[in-house]
Amino acid sequence: MSTYYTEDHEWIAVDGDVGTVGITKYAAEQLGDVVFVEVPEGGATYAKGDDMAVVESVKAASDVYAPVTGDVIEGNGELADAPETVNEDPEGKGWFCKLKLSSACELTGLMDAEAYKAYCKEL
């Protein structure tokens, strides 16, 4: 299993043709206290870059984009009642959804952990 990162601060952990998507630790810290998350429902299809989810703090609402094209297998329903999970464990229990990838070659455009770390340093 390998994890990729986008410049818009989403991560995707890929296992076979299934990817688990969330927002990065860096993003979660920048947002401040997350108070609401709207995750996609199973069955929905998104193209790479589509608005896929919404994450809200008290002072801002941010759209989360699909890092790759795919069909949603399931959304993380736990986040509805416990949005703070996104702050506590953004790259673990705070995942947003699982996607069935349409085209694995889209992953090549994304960053690995090292590259993303360097990218954040520049911000």
Binding site: F36, E56, S57, V58, K59, A60, A61
Partner: peptide, 14 residues
């Protein structure tokens, strides 16, 4: 005042 992210001063065009 709460759930303000629905409102124009935060969400603007959305």
């Amino acid at each position: 005042l709460t759930l303000s992210t629905r409102e124009q001063h935060i969400r603007r065009e959305k």
